[in-house]
């Protein structure tokens, strides 16, 4: 008998999941269900949509209404779900490549519209499923199968991109900082508009091995040692922040949500 959370929210007949030993994706997927459980949402009013990639396998394991869609298009499908059923809580699970490369255009425009979708980006810094090609979040000079001498592209900072594009709730946590991740997902789900939570994952198989990051445990320890909460960062010197990355709530500024604005147009013409 699995734990109460797993028994309640997972398709247990599909477990064990197919992710590699020590992959952070399993930790993040469970964190999503804990956040939903804490909020006490009606599970029949939740739809989880994913694209393609390791991260996007998560919808196969989650026992809600789920959609496993095409590469980069999770937000396009989710927009349709939300517009057809504005009362639904729509969650998108996507990866760094799925969200910011193949689906980059859908991503920035979903942010701009402030449509009521909570997007969780499982960022493992690489295309894991297809064999370790570098992605838009592979750090500069790190290696991938398509960058054997190091990647010369500058990496996207997904939360900064989302905030600039108009997302109204933005945060980042890691697989290691699981309790913070759960609380960010909870707050993201409470926001009526577009919420973006980057969940820093770990890929010991490709990104880790190609860049000599050690075992799955070493990669979580790296997250523990290099993440700085934004509330602590303001009191730190630039030298102390060198080589670190920020976690925490970066933006929480609610604005009118897209489907409710759309409904106002409909209501106006019904009256006339």
């Amino acid at each position: 008998m699995p734990s109460a959370i797993v028994n309640e929210y997972f398709r247990t007949n599909k477990l064990p999941q197919i992710w590699c030993p020590g992959c952070g994706h399993g930790i993040i997927t469970r964190a999503i269900t804990v956040a939903i459980d804490k909020l006490g949402f009606d599970r029949d009013k939740i739809c989880v949509v994913s694209g393609i990639g390791c991260s996007s396998r998560a919808t196969g394991y989650l026992d809600f209404d789920t959609l496993h869609t095409t590469h980069g298009r999770a937000l396009a499908f989710a927009t349709g779900v939300k517009l057809a059923n504005p009362e639904m809580k729509v969650i998108v699970i996507t990866g760094d490549g799925d969200a910011s490369a193949i689906g980059g255009n859908h991503f920035i425009h979903a942010c701009r519209r402030n449509i009521g979708i909570t997007t969780i980006v499982f960022n493992n810094n690489i295309y894991g499923m297809t064999g370790g090609q570098y992605s838009p979040t592979t750090p500069k000079f790190d290696k991938g199968t398509t960058a054997p001498y190091g990647n010369i592209d500058k990496a996207f900072d997904i939360p900064t991109l989302a905030a600039a594009a108009g997302a109204t709730y933005v945060g980042r946590s890691t697989a290691y900082h699981t309790n913070l991740l759960i609380s960010l997902i909870e707050n993201g789900l409470k926001n009526d508009g577009f919420s973006l939570i980057e969940a820093v994952s770990s890929c010991p198989t490709y990104y880790g091995r190609k860049n000599k990051k050690g075992s799955a445990v070493d990669m979580l320890e790296w997250q523990k040692d290099h993440a700085v909460n934004i509330s602590a960062a303001s009191k730190m010197t630039p030298e102390a922040l060198e080589g670190k990355f920020l976690i925490g709530e970066f933006k929480n500024s609610p604005e009118p949500e897209y489907t409710s604005e759309y409904q106002k147009i409909i209501d106006r013409f019904i009256k006339e």
Binding site: M1, P2, S3, T12, N13, L15, P16, C20, P21, G22, P204, S215, A216, V217, L220, E221
Partner: peptide, 28 residues
Amino acid sequence: MNSNETVTEKLTINENWCKGCGICVKFC
């Protein structure tokens, strides 16, 4: 149910699902 469980008063372990990554061992 796909399980091979060790049940104690405090913890339950399902060996069939464990992939031996060692994360729980390290952070206990």
